[in-house]
């Protein structure tokens, strides 16, 4: 009997170790899955020049459509081209080191700034700003969030696989953010098709494929 007990105890011990190993693995990967992997799947990016929307808008008093406007044919000009910037920044206007960098590195050298785009839709999508902004009167903030009020230079994260990006305003980004299914107030980025479709459905608009796909 004794030897039998011994054997059992040994087995129990083995089982306990095995179970322990099992749980260690489980916990490590559970934690990794919640904390490390989300970070790993996104690349952190900074804009080449620290542009501050709030400064240009609130402090200088430029209206949004000075830089963001529609072309005559109704298409959206998007991120302003250098010519727009150079309209004001022909020479240094202030003391900011970033402006100095902008003027010296880009304006004077006639180089274009490769702005990081975190709202850019993939090539298969043709999004109409006219239809949304002019016709449906959707506010910019509905999709872009507090972009125009950002006081901080916008660091953003780009998914290494999809290239979909998001930017976090206000508080630190939660470490477990995957650009999750539900957008939080402080996280804004590339609109996914399900988000488009949700909004269209809720407003009773058509969800025909060719409406947005090209």
């Amino acid at each position: 009997m004794e030897s039998g007990v011994k054997k059992l105890k040994k087995g129990e011990r083995e089982f306990a170790i095995t179970a322990g190993v099992f749980f260690v693995g489980l916990i490590i990967f559970l934690l990794a899955g919640w904390t490390v992997l989300p970070r790993l799947s996104y690349a952190e990016k900074v804009q080449p020049v620290e542009f501050r929307h709030a400064f240009h808008g609130e402090d200088v008093g430029i209206t949004c459509d000075t830089c963001h406007f529609f072309y005559k044919d109704g298409s959206w000009a998007g991120i302003p081209k250098m010519e727009i910037c150079v309209d004001c920044h022909v020479y240094l206007l202030g003391q900011s080191p970033e402006e100095k960098k902008f003027v010296h590195e880009y304006v004077l050298k006639n180089r274009h700034v490769k702005w990081g785009l975190y709202f850019r839709q993939p090539e298969c999508v043709s999004f109409s700003h006219s239809s949304h902004v002019r016709m449906a009167k959707v506010a910019c903030e509905t999709c872009h969030g507090p972009q125009g009020l950002s006081k901080k230079p916008t660091e953003y994260r780009t998914n290494r696989i999809t290239k979909y990006s998001f930017v976090v305003y206000g508080a630190e980004a939660p470490s477990n953010n995957y650009g999750g299914l539900k957008k939080e107030k402080s996280v804004w980025g590339t609109i996914r098709m399900d988000e488009c479709a949700d909004c269209h459905r809720s407003r009773g608009k058509s969800t025909a494929c060719f409406l947005c796909h090209k």
């Binding site: 109704g74 109409s128 002019r134 016709m135 060719f210």
Partner: peptide
């Protein structure tokens, strides 16, 4: 062929920009 559906989108784009539905 899609009947140039992108031209439909563009035309609508322009119409919407002019405030026409």
């Amino acid at each position: 062929c899609t009947f140039c559906s992108h031209r439909y989108s563009k035309a609508k784009n322009k119409a919407h920009n002019d405030g026409r539905g």
